[in-house]
Design a protein around this nucleic acid. Sequence first.
RNA 1: GGUCUUGUGGCCGAGAGGCUAGGCAGAGCUCUGCAAAAGCUUCCACAGCGGUUCGAAUCCGCUCAAGACCUCCA
Length: 501
Amino acid sequence: MPRGLYVYNSLSRQKEIFEPLNAPFVGMYVCGPTVYGDAHLGHARPAVTFDVIYRYLIHLGYRVRYVRNITDVGHLEHDADEGEDKIGKKAKLEQVEPMEIAQLYTDRYHADMERLNVCKPNIEPRASGHIIEQIEMTQQLIQKGYAYEVNGSVYFDVEKYNQLYRYGILSGRVLDELEAGAGNERRQLKQQTEKKNPHDFALWKKANPEHIMQWQSPWGKGFPGWHIECSAMSAKYLGERFDIHGGGMDLLFPHHECEIAQSNACFGKIPAKYWLHNNMVTINGQKMGKSLGNFITLRQFFSGKHPLLEQPYSPMTIRFFILQSHYRSTLDFSNEALKAASKGYKRLMNGLKYIKSLSFSAPESVSPQEKHLLEIEEAIRQFYQAMNDDFNTAVAIAALFQMLKKINQLFVGQIQPSLLGEDGFNKLKNYFITFTEDILGLLEEKPMYPEKAIQLAVQHYAEAKQAKNYAKVDEIRAHFKEMGLVLRDMKDRIEWAYDEN
RNA sequence: GGUCUUGUGGCCGAGAGGCUAGGCAGAGCUCUGCAAAAGCUUCCACAGCGGUUCGAAUCCGCUCAAGACCUCCA
């Protein structure tokens, strides 16, 4: 299909043609969750975004190795001096093993992602399973003179690195200016650390005796620093240089900046060729995040149990909602927007369900009109063009609705399949299904009753209708409504569909 | 204080110098026991003020507003 995929590279701040280092292979690393709480809408965004990128690359014929990590150690709660990590803190509160917490939330994350129809990554490495790799990388950095040990902790020497390379290449920061505007409080805090320089970041942290998560290292007992896991694990599974590194925009600095510094100092190359960052989900115009406490978990969306939610929103509604905006724009949460997404999604699914049930037939009397074929091909072109333009799913979905229009015209019998011609019909059907299901990952959320039971009820409805027993008819309609379904009386038949309200 | 981004119709959300985005909502028509759905038609825009241009929502400047990062965060 159409070649020429362009992606926005945060490193160059512009769109670049996507050319893998070793086509047809593509290595993609995306920063996954820290598993100490349930995933919220903000976690769904990168998961869905990079899921579609993954699916599209595969669709284009690339052989993708997708690595998404699980952070189950190492992220510090306040600042490095406190030396308490998030997983450990929660575990102490709940009197369980830290790994139990990590396991629990990993499982819950997996379940949530499955409901969102997010593909599993090919490799999902855990930080705790790669302590050795992280220690080795830290040792190498010490050997090369880019890291130093103080009291059982090891820090990356940003000043030293910046002499040869440029710290800030990704985020556009200049080292000398970094500290300039920092408030007094922060400056005082930073001066108390054992770091040579406030910008230096931990590769390895010494653990206090009461600290539960700790491992033996050449520098005593401790745990890995904030950023080293991604450098160590991406290098292990994708090589020292790979194609795509993704994550949320809030990770751009310092996380990804530090990753680049570490990996570059260690291996002499910037780890990824393309750096892709999704924008934030906002709520009342503000970033949805853990620290602000203004987040709504995915489970709360699915159940509707949150004060801000007027109703539950299904996983596919959430997915569709995310895909309706471009991944580099902020996406504002509101009940109105979600409800609109829900309706749009269901309309799309009704079309999908119908076109799947339809096959081409051509009575001799009707001959195809080229106009239809051209319109179908135009929509297909628009879809690819949109996806090739930095994965513009919003425009891609607009193309899908163009195709839906044709499907609905078939549905109400305004046009016949034969009018599209066999080629036109097959293109409409096959591309619509491929685009919707395979690339965008939007699936029907099937009713909880088997198709056969529903067909039986449809029959009863038809009979009541025939007998003009309108009381019965209305009763059956009400039952369908309860199931989230509706009945549609067509001229020549009766169909059931998903209720769009 | 620094770096950066954004401001589009009732709501959400694309686009990016001249050509319909799209979804949801609203109005009308067709269809219908009543519906529902769909189709067709239709209303409603580019924060403000200047400038560049034959032409600006799109480029430049200023003003106002909102937000992100500089600390763990997707």
